[in-house]
Design a protein around this nucleic acid. Structure first.
Lengths: 203, 203
DNA sequence: TGTAATTTTGACCACTTGGTTAAACCTGTT
DNA sequence: AACAGGTTTAACCAAGTGGTCAAAATTACA
């Protein structure tokens, strides 16, 4: 049964996602989202009540798409070095496909930190499993002594930061050459895991 | 000669810096800045014409305080490993004193990327000097083969990201314990340089 | 086909915000 | 004391904002 509204709600949602992710909550206008969806502004309120509600819907959906794969990777039962290579490769790959996500997150983090933590935990990331694996490897003498927290933050930093700071880094050390920076990011899929493993492997 | 305005302009500037750095341009209100400075809103326009001009004044000042020390460190003529230790320690220290700066920058980066690159170059950061030093060490066989760009972005990532993502990381892996996270950041002053040098040192 | 229910629209509202202005207020000078 | 300069203020304005509403258009259904 095709209802009268042939995907109106979905069109609003997609338009909102585009605009919100690109500009963040405070720089996005309801009017702009309506235009992007090709309809009247009042419809956004008809379907989603308020800007805040619409934003929450978008934000939850983005989290739901981004977090579970990470959770799954962290808990996968494969050797540590393999796992690091796997996570870095997949994570950077997904950031290459969605390069605005880090800034979108960082902005929302400031606005509402606790909510994000709760969503992340809801979708199942339990860093303790990964921590345990790291500690086991340390005890087994396979990697150097390092705080698991330091290691995982290092991994995150190395993956995410180049996307958040792209405009400046690209301007400073890549003569603003977009292709060069894309290539740079592509190579990081291997470089970052090499860098990490090099650092923690026991000689 | 003490004029009638006993530092009014400076008080505006300080108030604006506080508010802008904490909330970013778009979430800051002129009224709020006026309140913080304890004066009438019209005075902000009397001294700085517009919100944008006031923001530029603040932004330039912050850049002027943050960039030159980095430029100086990058060009200092000391051995590479020492330099890495020096930069990481000083940089993280300065971020501990000004933890909102990374988010402030990342937000402004999106708004006006090219302007930032120009300011940075104006204040004298020339990464080429550092790149040359890295390439020399590679040729001399002291460190492994690595793209200088990858290395410097790794260094930046490891220093800056934990401040930008603090609320989430603190919530996820430090049970939202502020003191634990402060301690974590403090330890990174040594951990990050160890991590980097471990990775690039030739065995 | 006629009617009720739902969806869509344009006009509108209340409020916020950056910015302006004319008048009041110093403060130093004569 | 009176004047002249810059400084400070309260009141105001225009534009933009999220949100509302009644009427129009469309769809579902008897």
């Amino acid at each position: 049964m095709i209802k009268g509204n042939q995907g109106t709600e979905e069109r609003i949602f997609e338009a909102a996602k585009n605009v919100f992710v690109k500009k963040g909550l405070n720089n996005s206008r309801m009017q702009e989202i309506a235009q992007e969806a090709g309809m009247n502004k009042a419809l956004l309120h008809y379907y989603y009540r308020s800007k805040e509600k619409l934003f929450q819907a978008v934000f939850n959906s983005v989290m739901k798409r981004v977090i579970p794969p990470i959770a799954e990777m962290l808990e996968k039962e494969i050797p540590l070095f393999e796992k690091i290579e796997f996570i870095v490769d997949r994570y950077i790959n997904s950031l290459i496909s969605n390069p605005q996500i880090p800034v979108f997150f960082i902005q929302e983090i400031q606005r509402n930190p606790q909510q994000i933590v709760e969503i992340i935990k809801k979708y199942g990331i339990k860093p303790e499993v990964f921590f345990q694996q790291i500690e086991n490897e340390i005890k087994a003498g396979n990697i150097i002594d390092i705080q698991p927290q330091q290691l995982i933050v290092n991994l995150l930093s190395l993956c995410v930061f180049p996307f958040a700071a792209r405009p400046v880094v690209q301007g400073m050390i890549f003569e603003n050459d977009k292709k060069k920076y894309d290539q740079f990011l592509f190579e990081r899929k291997k470089e970052v895991s090499k860098f990490i493993i090099n650092s923690i492997r026991k000689k």
